[in-house]
Design a protein around this nucleic acid. Structure first.
Lengths: 179, 179
DNA sequence: TTTTCCATGTAACTCGTTACATGATTTC
DNA sequence: GAAATCATGTAACGAGTTACATGGAAAA
């Protein structure tokens, strides 16, 4: 229901058509949501059928006709309900990248380090990209703040893992020297 | 492919049957993976057909017969490939809870704060639960370390959000007093 | 003149969960 | 005697993505 909440929240401020909504999300919230066009259209259709919003066909000049969606009182009620539920719940994140870490010792430390350094490079690039995102109005800025805080925390942690592997490589080297 | 990697990694150390694998994952890695029984059986079947493992029917006493899976060289190769890919990539996490935050200003600050305090309680409980997880052998401990680091970071950040709302409630109160 | 943008959608597919079925055995 | 454990699976469903289709207008 999070995607529905997102669409409702955007339509609440201003009526919009599907293409416009998708564009806004992709440009401003790409960091935290990845909503495809087809999905957006599908959800809007379904919410309109549920009575949460009404469609109005509109055409400007020779451009393709647009379906503009406008929230109904039922839609506003749904928004309020979904918003409270979302805010009150802590949805634990799942890190697919952890599965690899569980088997880190299956690789020679030097190779493991190489892999993790590549992961680190991507993470650092993401963090830099996040630092360059312009300010958002109002509470939408929290999303950016969270992203930055999270990425910084991830980088810090990954560096600890890499450091640990590096010391294990060094001690391995010493053993080789001694033997 | 992360679930496949997980099953391969476990079978690599020791041959196991489906029930056993699912139980191990649910007891030891529930914090980061949520693999259902049916899914586990399905994936094992598919990987066996792909030649990554061989099945052996075995029966102990009157217990139901078990399908024990054993890695083949092809399975080991797949494991190596998937492991490197997993370690080298940074899979950005998506936080569904951020969508609500984007519309925080749609709620009266006091109510927003109430919701977030409930979120905080769950998060704090998760963090405590993570603190109580016993040590894992070898690099599997990294998964627990990551979970703890992440949850602590999340709590820190959420407290900043709550603090900010609290001050906005207080300044609102002052305005009420003055008027 | 080909590509990109605008604007909407459908159909097929993947991934994974839920609910259900089976049947013996052990525990309460 | 009822419920939980062991052990495997199937069928149906749901959420979401991918690929594709359409067709005019603006930009390269």
């Amino acid at each position: 229901m999070d995607r529905e909440l997102l669409l409702l929240g955007l339509l609440r401020r201003q009526e919009m058509h599907g293409y416009q909504l998708h564009e806004f999300i992709n440009q401003n919230l790409a960091s935290c949501v990845n909503l495809k066009k087809s999905t957006a259209y599908f959800l809007l259709d379904r919410m309109a059928e549920a009575g949460w919003m009404v469609e109005t066909e509109s055409q400007e000049g020779n451009r393709p006709p647009r379906r503009v969606y406008q929230l109904t009182p039922a839609g506003e009620a749904a928004f309020q309900r979904l918003l409270r539920a979302n805010l009150a719940a802590h949805e634990p994140a799942r890190f697919a990248g952890d599965i690899g870490l569980a088997f880190l010792d299956a690789l020679p430390p030097a190779e493991a380090r190489d892999c993790l350094l590549r992961r680190r490079a991507q993470l650092a690039a993401d963090l830099e990209a996040a630092a360059r995102i312009p300010e958002h109005a109002g509470s939408m800025q929290w999303v950016i703040d969270h992203l930055r805080h999270h990425l910084a925390s991830e980088l810090e942690w990954l560096d600890r893992v890499i450091a640990q592997i590096t010391t294990s490589i060094e001690s391995h080297d010493h053993e080789e020297e001694e033997s």
